[in-house]
């Protein structure tokens, strides 16, 4: 794979996705050693440009970059420049002057990482842009799914606010690219019609589809209210994994995934967190390996490297 940036998964060929996932395996193996660090990006600078707060994705990228021996700087924008009125272009110029080799961007505006990628020779990785894409989340989900089901054709039910979710978009894209079947379940107004993806609005109906994996999206509490769903309590009753539904899941040995952080009592009940087929912690661990593979495979195009 020869690419400068990773901005979404839709534009990747299946074979490129598989290459990234294959390359993440040796990185995951490193986690068994006492020294988890390798010198592959020694002397390189990775800048984390986060216009939206995110503890998990930011930490995961930070751990990944540090395990590759890169120098990591967190550019926490909401609290600094945006407040001071600095434009994105000015911020990028500042980063250029800092000679960043890799820039990891999270922004609420769809497409912004792509704009930045065109302005700089550094490799740009989207860490989530609006409802557009969250490619490394999709990749880590695919890596985790492939660990439990190496054969394609298995069925994944994605539950929640599909319409506003970049996780749903990236994850369903990559699952389907790899030959898994995907269906959506959620409140009617929040489940878009996508060709080739089954659409359910009731849990019982979705259950009859017989999914192998139930992928729960995080509920954004600020979206509650009559417009989308009445309350989080109501959401739990209709689409959450209640005690009763958990017994169904456990009896049939279904797997549970969630991008984290979970809202206990909303997307799922407490018992799910202790269930042996809940993959949430494994998704976190795999996220580091996948992000290491992405940083390893991308190649910045910097003028000073050509000399």
């Amino acid at each position: 794979m020869v690419r400068k940036d990773l901005l979404d998964l839709a534009s990747l060929e299946r074979q490129e996705v598989e290459e990234i996932l294959d390359q993440a395996i040796p990185f995951k193996d490193l986690f068994q050693r006492s020294v988890k660090k390798v010198p592959a990006l020694k002397g390189k600078t990775v800048l984390m440009l986060f216009y939206e707060p995110s503890t998990r994705t930011l930490s995961s990228f930070e751990v990944a970059a540090k395990r590759l021996s890169a120098d990591v700087t967190v550019f926490d924008v909401p609290h600094s420049s945006v407040v001071k009125g600095e434009s994105v272009k000015d911020t990028i110029d500042t980063l250029q002057a800092m000679q960043a080799d890799y820039i990891v961007v999270r922004h609420q505006m769809p497409g912004l990482p792509g704009r930045i990628a065109r302005m700089t020779g550094a490799s740009v990785v989207s860490a989530g842009d609006g409802a557009h894409a969250h490619p490394t989340q999709g990749l880590l989900d695919a890596f985790t799914l492939r660990e439990i089901y190496p054969e394609s054709g298995k069925k994944v039910l994605i539950v929640g606010d599909i319409r506003h979710s970049r996780v749903a978009r990236s994850t369903s894209t990559v699952f389907r690219k790899l030959g898994y079947e995907v269906a959506f379940l959620g409140p009617g107004s929040l489940v878009p019609d996508v060709p080739g993806i089954k659409r359910f609005t009731s849990f019982d109906e979705a259950w009859r589809w017989n999914p192998d994996v139930v992928y729960l999206l995080r509920v954004q509490k600020e979206r509650q209210g009559a417009q989308y769903y009445p309350s989080v309590g109501e959401y739990h009753k209709l689409y959450g994994v209640t005690e009763e539904r958990f017994r169904l899941i456990a009896d049939e040995g279904k797997w549970v995934m969630h991008p984290g952080p979970v809202n206990r009592g909303v997307e799922l009940c407490d018992a799910v967190m202790d269930y042996e087929r809940t993959l949430i912690n494994r998704q976190v661990e795999n996220g580091i390996a996948v992000r290491m593979a992405v940083l390893y495979l991308l190649k910045p195009k910097l003028a000073r490297m050509e000399s």
Partner: peptide, 22 residues
């Protein structure tokens, strides 16, 4: 042992070598 991640010329390559597990 796979030594790809320890090579001293990674920054000079246009495509990094394919890793295998050690």
């Amino acid at each position: 042992l796979d030594i790809s991640l320890y090579r001293d010329d990674l920054a000079h390559l246009t495509e990094n070598p394919k890793l295998q597990s050690s």
